[in-house]
Amino acid sequence: MSRVWAVPPGSGGSVKPRLRVRLTKGYLRVARLVRDLGIATVCEGALCPNIGECWGSGTATFMIMGDTCTRGCRFCYVKKGKPEPLDPGEPYKVALAVKMLGLDYVTITSVDRDDLPDGGASHFAATVKAIKKVNPRVVVEALIPDFQGVREHVELVALSGLEVLAHNIETVRRLTPRVRDRRAGYEQSLRVLEYAKEANPKLVTKSSILLGLGEEREEVVEAMRDLRSVGVDILVLSQYLRPSPKQLPVAKVYSMREFRELEEIGYKLGFAYVVAHPLARTSYKAREAYHAALKRMRGIGRGG
């Protein structure tokens, strides 16, 4: 799909990505596989505009523990409500999907499961282990929920054998109560990233900030500093796009120049890699970001 920005008529100048709808054989193969195995994807759940590109190139981001989230963040399109019980066979279904797609890098995420005693941490860890058992050479990146800030639950995933652990701060400190569910927290998310790194210093950690929700530039820089203070290696900056009228409106559309400026600040603050693009999402080009970050980290003699 092409990735040009469009100004729709009558939109008052708001900008949307223009996507060429072309469902290639590769795309349809991924669609069939995830459907037949019964694995949810965040690509579908969030109406991700990159779905054509990613599925077309034979990859997807699996969303484990069902397609229904117990949280009600006001930027997110994933279904909210009372989730189904966990599928104990899911870890192996995901491992099988990785094998069938022949992936050498896999990104998995999940809904929040505040209904489970451990928030789903043990299921998440079991999924990473199953993927590794079936596909020993695959690099695993997990985008995890906050597990309500419980250190033991974060550690369970951090020590499950994965290479990259992502947890999103999503927005700046001031806007967190408006943008995210009341059970989420800015400090709590920083702690999650800190606990993960402390438990497993070899982990590459990663976090995303959605821009365009009403934040000031200084607040974005403050959030970037806060992420560095807990050792985050990879930063993702992207444009918030409203999925439907039920979510928050877009307060600002950032220019490519503003993305470049923030990217530069990110490098000055010491991130090993910064993905800054309107359509970047946490898992977008994750493989490339990981390898670039590793190279830089090795080059300057820190981390793994």
Binding site: S2, P8, S11, K16, P17, R18, L19, V21, P49, R242
Partner: peptide, 15 residues
């Protein structure tokens, strides 16, 4: 492209 469809998140080009 025959037509463009606007949804909340994007403009879809239908070919």
């Amino acid at each position: 492209v025959l037509a463009e469809v606007e949804i909340e998140k994007a403009i879809l080009e239908i070919e």
